[in-house]
Structure formats: C-alpha cells, structure tokens
Amino acid sequence: MKKKAFVAIISASMLVSMGTGALAATKLQEIKAYLNTEVRVQVNGSHVDLRDVKGNVIAPISYQGANYFPIRAISDALDIAVDYDETTQTIIIGEKVDGVSIVDGFKDMYYTKDSAKTTYKGKDYKEAYFNDGPGNRSTSFMLYPNKEHQTLYLQIAAVNGDITALNIEDSDTNTTLKKIDVIKAEEGLVTVQADIAGVKSLYIHGDVKSDTVVFVPLTTSYYK
C-alpha cells in the first residue's frame, strides 16, 4: 500500500495533537479513554516505536474499540509531511495545495535583492541566490523545510557555463534525495523536484567552473 493511501486511511481515526492551539477550540467533547501499551506498530514489516515531538516513545489511546495515535507520530514513521494551519484549524498531510516559497528565512552570502542580479532573461524575480564567485568552485546553500512539506520544487539556472553533480541531500542523515549530473546553460531555468518528506534541513550543492553563475529565483522556488 502506498504511503499516501495508508495515511489517508488511518488519519481519519487519528487523534489530533498538533499543538496547544487546538485545545482552545470551542467544540471539544470530553471522553474517557485509556493508554494501551500492549499495541505495537509495524511499518513495511518492521517494528517501529512511535514518538511524540520530544522524541518520547508513546502508546496509543484506546477508545470504543479503536486505537488513536497523534498524526505527527504516524507521519514521521511513514516519512509523510504534516503541518497544521491554526487559522483554519486544518491538518495538512502530504503536499499542500499552495506552494510555500523557499525565500522565507533564506540566509546565504549569495542572497541578493539587487535587480541587476535578480533579473533573468528579462524577468525580475526580486530575490535570488546568485553565486558569481571566482574560479572553479563548489556552489551550495541550506534550506529548512522542518518536516512540514512533502516536495521541493527548486528552480535553478546555469549562466555562462554548466552546473555539474547537483545534489539535494538530507543534511541530518547525509542521504541523497536527488542527483542531477549536469544542468546546461542552454537549458535555461529548470525545475528540480525532490521528495523531502520527513526532512528537517536540506544541503544543496554542485560544482561549477570559473565564470559560471548559479541563479536560483527564491520567490518561485517552493515547497508543497
């Protein structure tokens, strides 16, 4: 069973525990339930310990013949992104309908708002990663999806040369999530898609030769 289908089935009966904001809701109903430490969970044939946001192993709540876990614990076990919109009190599992720009919180020495550098082929993207460093070099930056997104859509262009060995990695586990052998200058602005479910931080890096510029429009690169 695919991960998304599995989550869609079980999440309907999961206990919502996304934060203290939910406790302020006006339609809460008090119930009597029990912690059931005898229930064990397997994912794809392997036993897993479900954990809360602090890393503590948790047991399900048994109520009227059903077992309830926090959605966050299930999503972490399945590497499915989960987030909570406090405004609409909506739990979002998997990809979001609207993309979230990677520009929020982006920090790097090559970050710029200079229109001379944020403009590519006549369009001003307002904010960009513009690596025009000297000589043959590695080009790299960090992103922090914080386990709240399913997919990264990264727009990137090579100018005056090629980008080789482009890697998108989970920086906490050093796991390669996406690898592109080469992005050629003549390809223009390309979109690289990577599954980032369950990932807190991303390390994105590649190699370029002298005079090559790496252009990433931050406003149109996004998470979903």
Rank of each mutant, 00 (worst) to 15 (best):
51 R>H: 03
126 K>N: 06
220 T>R: 00
157 A>E: 04
6 F>L: 14
215 F>T: 01
95 E>G: 15
21 G>L: 10
15 L>H: 09
20 T>F: 08
6 F>E: 08
69 F>N: 01
82 V>N: 07
5 A>P: 03
116 A>Q: 11
212 T>C: 12
35 L>F: 06
34 Y>C: 09
94 G>V: 09
186 E>C: 04
197 A>R: 05
56 N>E: 05
58 I>A: 05
33 A>K: 08
109 M>W: 05
161 G>P: 11
202 L>I: 05
125 Y>F: 00
7 V>K: 03
45 G>E: 06
79 D>C: 10
167 N>L: 12
174 N>I: 04
132 D>F: 11
105 G>Q: 10
64 Q>I: 07
216 V>Q: 00
20 T>A: 15
147 K>Q: 15
16 V>S: 14
40 R>K: 13
164 T>F: 09
135 G>Q: 05
58 I>N: 01
25 A>L: 15
205 H>Q: 04
151 T>P: 09
66 A>R: 09
209 K>P: 01
211 D>I: 04
8 A>F: 04
181 D>F: 04
103 V>R: 12
201 S>K: 12
145 P>H: 14
121 K>A: 15
84 Y>R: 09
54 K>L: 05
114 D>P: 06
30 E>M: 10
82 V>Q: 00
40 R>F: 02
66 A>C: 02
85 D>P: 11
159 V>Y: 11
148 E>D: 11
157 A>R: 07
11 S>P: 00
218 L>W: 00
65 G>K: 06
31 I>R: 14
104 D>Q: 13
154 L>I: 08
129 Y>V: 03
1 M>R: 06
164 T>P: 06
133 G>N: 08
124 D>F: 01
69 F>M: 02
136 N>M: 11
41 V>T: 05
189 L>Y: 06
160 N>G: 10
49 D>P: 02
114 D>I: 07
190 V>R: 11
2 K>L: 11
171 S>E: 12
25 A>E: 12
156 I>E: 07
74 I>D: 04
144 Y>C: 09
5 A>I: 11
108 D>I: 04
136 N>R: 13
62 S>Y: 03
160 N>P: 10
61 I>M: 04
195 D>K: 15
42 Q>Y: 09
50 L>K: 03
169 E>R: 14
4 K>H: 06
26 T>C: 06
173 T>Y: 12
146 N>R: 14
130 F>V: 09
11 S>I: 05
176 T>S: 15
64 Q>P: 02
147 K>S: 12
148 E>V: 06
14 M>A: 15
18 M>D: 10
111 Y>C: 08
182 V>G: 07
82 V>W: 04
46 S>N: 10
10 I>D: 02
161 G>M: 13
171 S>Y: 11
109 M>K: 15
14 M>W: 03
79 D>Y: 06
136 N>S: 14
164 T>V: 14
87 T>F: 05
42 Q>V: 03
224 K>Q: 08
48 V>Y: 00
197 A>Y: 01
